[in-house]
């Protein structure tokens, strides 16, 4: 049983709080970290890789602080950074062999391991090519390959699907599902579909705070009753869009079919519908904003009316 425990983990950059008292316990399974640009996903992941040290709180693996574990922690860690650099003069094979050496993969297991990775990433045909000739998607696949080279217990993938074509995306999802069986896999994305079917647990991050967590079904469940569908004319559609988050918009003849995330019924003839993960994401992001607005109002209100 693996356990990676984040205890009120906080990171500040100057006055900006990038990750704010993040509390969670991760065990075997796939975790999808969802959040907007600048939500703090990368910062959180860099802390989990011990590339950054938290300003507050601590991260423990199996009860031990990861900062103190040093090389022992890195031995069970696999990391794909969001911005992934490579050596243009290296061939794919040389690159992986080099990293295998750094990751202390036993040399006698290496050929087998490499075959596995070629299979996994579909890069077998280009293994002898220099990395300078690789496309962005190929590099990302190679990046995923290097991350799993040492059979890590903790696998951290920062936007692993960015730059992949739809076919590769699907392939990648299947890979992740299979990897998540006996290890902790944390992957960040802002594409909801990437994690909808494979994540055992979704972590919704906004402004460095954990807004919601749970299985996709649980998260969707929480948004139930807040998703509406309605058919309006174009003028109305614009107004509704300004007021509420719209998760889908489709023009039908001279009318527009909207899918709206809202606590109350947006228009009288709107029909409630089953939320999907995207709706839930919008719901929680919206809720966070509303919460902040309300908080702002409460702070400005006379003391007697508070609480």
């Amino acid at each position: 049983m693996l356990e990676l425990k984040l205890d009120r983990v906080t990171k500040r950059f100057g006055t900006k709080i990038a990750v704010d008292a993040f509390d969670h316990v991760l065990s075997e399974g796939v975790y999808g970290l969802l959040g907007a640009n600048g939500a703090g996903k990368t910062t959180l992941m860099r802390m989990l890789c011990s590339l950054l040290s938290p300003d507050g709180g601590e991260i423990r693996f199996q009860g031990e602080r990861i900062g103190e574990m040093g090389a022992r922690y890195r031995r069970i860690l696999g990391y794909l950074p969001q911005e992934f650099g490579f050596y243009p003069e290296f061939t794919a094979e040389r690159y992986l062999t080099y990293l295998a050496r750094l990751k202390a993969v036993p040399p006698r297991l290496l050929p087998e391991k490499l075959d596995e990775i070629w299979e996994l990433t579909g890069l077998a045909d280009v293994r002898k090519q220099k990395l300078r000739s690789f496309s962005g998607g190929m590099l990302r696949r190679l990046g995923i390959g290097q991350a799993v080279l040492n059979d890590p217990d903790v696998l951290i993938l920062d936007e692993p699907t960015s730059g992949l074509d739809p076919k590769e995306r699907i392939r990648f999802r299947n890979i992740i599902s299979s990897l998540g069986k006996d290890r902790i896999v944390l992957l960040s994305t802002h594409i909801v579909q990437d994690v909808e079917f494979i994540a055992d647990e979704i972590l919704l991050l906004k402004d460095g705070r954990l807004k919601a967590s749970g299985t996709p079904a649980e998260v969707m469940q929480k948004a139930r009753g807040h998703v509406w569908k309605c058919l309006v004319d174009e003028g109305w559609a614009g107004r509704l869009e300004e007021r509420w988050p719209v998760s889908n918009l489709k023009t039908v003849g001279d009318q527009v079919c909207l899918r709206i995330v809202s606590a109350e019924k947006p228009v009288p003839d709107a029909a409630a519908c089953e939320p999907n993960l995207e709706d839930a994401y919008l719901f929680f992001m919206q809720e966070a904003e509303n919460g902040r607005e309300k908080q702002g109002i409460a702070q400005n209100a006379p003391a007697g009316r508070r609480g």
Binding site: C49, R74, Y79, F84, L99, L102, A104
Partner: peptide
């Protein structure tokens, strides 16, 4: 970042 997260990368 990749080097520094490898066991022998430091």
């Amino acid at each position: 970042p990749v080097l520094l997260t490898c066991a022998k990368g430091v």
